[in-house]
C-alpha cells in the first residue's frame, strides 16, 4: 500500500478543484484593485459577447470563461497578422472573504468589470474611542 498517498490526503485535506480544458484559450489581462468595500476586477476581453461570459465563484475560486466567436473566416488570408481570436479562460484564488451573493458584473467596450463585495466580517471598521 502506498503510505505516501494516505499521508498527503490526511494532511492536505480535500483536493482543490482541477479543470480539464480542451481547445485553446486566451488568458485575458486583468487589473484587480482592492477598495475599502470591495475587490474590483477588470478584464480585457475584446470582441466577447456579454451574454456568453461565464463567471463562477466557489470556495474562493473565481473562474472567468467566455466564448469569443471568430470574427473572420478560416479562409481569411492576412496581409499582416498580430493576434488571433478565441475563447478566454482564467481562474483566481481569492483569499479575501467575499460576499458571494452580491457579486455583480457588467461588460462594455470590451472590458468585463466584476465587483466582489467584501463580506461584512472583514470590512474595515473604524472604532470610535469615547472620551471620558
Amino acid at each position: 500500500m502506498n503510505t505516501e498517498n494516505v499521508l498527503s490526503k490526511a494532511e492536505g485535506g480535500a483536493a482543490a478543484a482541477e479543470h480539464t480544458r480542451s481547445g485553446r484559450f486566451f488568458r485575458p489581462h486583468v487589473d484587480i484593485v482592492e477598495k475599502a468595500e470591495e475587490l474590483l476586477l477588470l478584464a480585457d476581453v475584446p470582441g466577447a459577447d456579454g451574454d456568453a461570459i461565464d463567471i463562477r465563484f466557489e470556495d474562493g475560486e473565481l473562474t472567468l470563461h467566455g466564448k469569443v466567436e471568430p470574427r473572420q473566416g478560416n479562409d481569411r488570408r492576412y496581409l499582416h497578422q498580430e493576434y488571433d481570436v478565441g475563447d478566454f479562460y482564467r481562474t483566481f484564488q481569492i483569499s479575501e472573504a467575499i460576499d458571494a451573493g452580491k457579486i455583480s458584473a457588467d461588460y462594455g467596450d470590451g472590458v468585463l468589470t466584476l465587483h466582489l463585495p467584501k463580506a461584512e466580517s472583514v470590512k474595515l471598521r473604524k472604532i470610535a474611542v469615547a472620551a471620558k
Binding site: H29, V30, D31, I32, V33, E34, L39, L42, D44
Partner: peptide, 14 residues
C-alpha cells in the same frame, strides 16, 4: 483607473 490610495493585486492592463 488609478486613483489615490488604491491597492493593486494585479495590474496587467496597459
Amino acid at each position: 483607473i488609478a486613483e489615490e490610495g488604491l491597492t493593486y493585486h494585479r495590474r496587467e492592463r496597459p
